[in-house]
Design a protein around this nucleic acid. Structure first.
Lengths: 184, 184, 184, 184
DNA sequence: AATGAATGAGTCTTCATTCAT
DNA sequence: AATGAATGAAGACTCATTCAT
């Protein structure tokens, strides 16, 4: 990614997360990236193309991080804990990116279908990690519940940050605690 | 709510959930509600006004349901379990509504701020219910984590349904289980 | 065709004939028709749609005129002469329309293919009239040559008017004369 | 004309004939000529400049051919017949070029005025040749009609080829026949 | 209470042109 | 002699909103 593309990427994440896909204006992305509008179209075929690039890149970061943790020689339970921590850290660093995902997860537009497809790759990774916890203990349904609970935990963090604003305290440690051991 | 308004409400939920706020066209809402475009503006001042009405109404349903459960004379632990079940049932019945919330939760537009405000009222209700579990055991931060974990669980259900499509199995029981007792 | 649509039609013929299809700006059509840009799109799905409407309507006028002549109880030779005269009169009254046709006759765009298709219906009409002159005398090829010569005569009139400007003398009588009896 | 310019010329004729002047993209001309976009501007000041070069060159070919025939020591009637044949041959070989002329003949843009100017030089040549047929027999108006009939015959050939497509039979002989002796 | 024709601001996108290399 | 990244003006099209009926 060269300098111009990088600038466009960063501006895109910001604008998409603030305004969603439809609400985002290419004009504003260009302005925030400090390039002319035409430059966006020199590097990306269309708004949708740019959006998909943003998704691919952002999810790529999360997947890379997850793979790094999964590759570590840890006991399954330690590994899932570590994965939680690590991914929540990434989420906090890329808060805006998570917002984009959430705001575009539903619907039948091509871009939304593609996004779900990519997110599924990510979910698959988590599934494997959770699966290691002990095949005899988890049915397929139980694993699914654990995976989507995991995603839900990531979302909780994003929702928390959106709803409590800047003066928020970090509760990610407690979210992990609850995810692993329950609130009771 | 008379017949026309009802039709507009239902059409709005569908269209907003499919296309988000900005992507939704008043034209399409009118068409799906089988009324002329002008009729929308006879009943609602603006698109934003309509959106806020939809939010108020939809969240109203969830709050009503929650209050009903909270009003029951149950032990705190049983009550929170019952609340989970009941709310997940509502979520499943109003899947589209939850999608609208999620897609419009972030951003600095007036409607988004108002939505977060309303959602906060809902969160407050959950917070009280969780607080009953035993004040001595929960710090403010812990309660927050439990509340947002609760919201995250609702989201998990919606995300699950979005990503697995029609042939999905119901995992809400397991989601509750995990929320209350953890995945480990 | 109501008042608004009529105004748009007239403005369209003018602008399309002056600037061609691609060169014509919807903005300018709107301005000349004294309506807002949005109004164009209320009445026509797209620029292409508007263009096709213009073609259909314009060729319709010529076809109607031709049919009127063809319906007359005249000797074949008199009829073809009458047809020449009558059609040239229409061409002169709708000079701009003929320019649009010529400027859009070639190319592989959908609109251009459709235009050629419609023009073929017109050519077919001429072909029948020429065919009446005496089947035994004309081979298929000869009829074709006569038909396209006819079209060429119409075009000659338009080209003449474009190239000699306003102070032109009317030469349509001579064009007919030449078409029927040759220049020699 | 060196190799690069030659390639640009050929690509230009193709693209201009397929898309008209406004519809033609410098990008596509560059691509078809296998040069970078910047190269076009190294050889030509602007799109209009390139267009005018194409017109000048193409009409130059037709004028050269016409002059060759006119220079021959033939009887006026034979000469005009020969001219018809020869020019129709050129038209068939440069079909695309004729399409560009026709699609750009009308309108008030500078390039269109210039094109008509150049075409007038060509028409003048034809006029002289026709004039030789016998001044006593032709009034100025009659000569004009014969000249524009000649142009119309060329156009007929192009229109015929556009409308009947690839499986067309050659009717140029008949077109000449009709032009000289009429269809009756 | 309801309609739908009309509007114009705002959006995505294209493309001729420039310029540093 | 040639390139291609970058530009910004201009164009097609959308859509919330208004208003006369």
């Amino acid at each position: 990614m060269n300098k111009t593309k990088e600038a466009i990427y960063k501006a895109s994440v910001d604008v998409f997360s603030q305004s969603g896909y439809t609400g985002a204006a290419m004009d504003e992305i260009a302005e925030r990236a400090n390039v002319a509008k035409g430059t966006l179209y020199y590097h990306f075929k269309s708004k949708e193309d740019l959006f998909l690039f943003v998704m691919q890149t952002g999810l790529g970061h999360m997947i890379d991080d997850a793979k790094k943790v999964i590759g570590k020689p840890l006991a399954p339970m330690d590994k899932i804990t570590e994965l939680c921590k690590s991914q929540l850290r990434v989420v906090r660093k890329n808060e805006n990116f998570v917002k984009v995902i959430l705001s575009q997860l539903f619907g039948q537009e091509e871009r939304q279908r593609l996004l779900r497809g990519k997110l599924n790759e990510y979910a698959q990774l988590i599934r494997e990690c959770i699966g290691e916890l002990g095949v005899e203990k988890h049915t397929e349904k139980e694993t699914s519940a654990a995976v989507f609970g995991f995603l839900g935990t990531m979302v909780s963090a994003a929702v928390y940050s959106a709803m409590t604003g800047t003066q928020k305290k970090d509760i990610s440690g407690l979210l992990i605690q609850n995810y692993l051991h329950g609130i009771l």
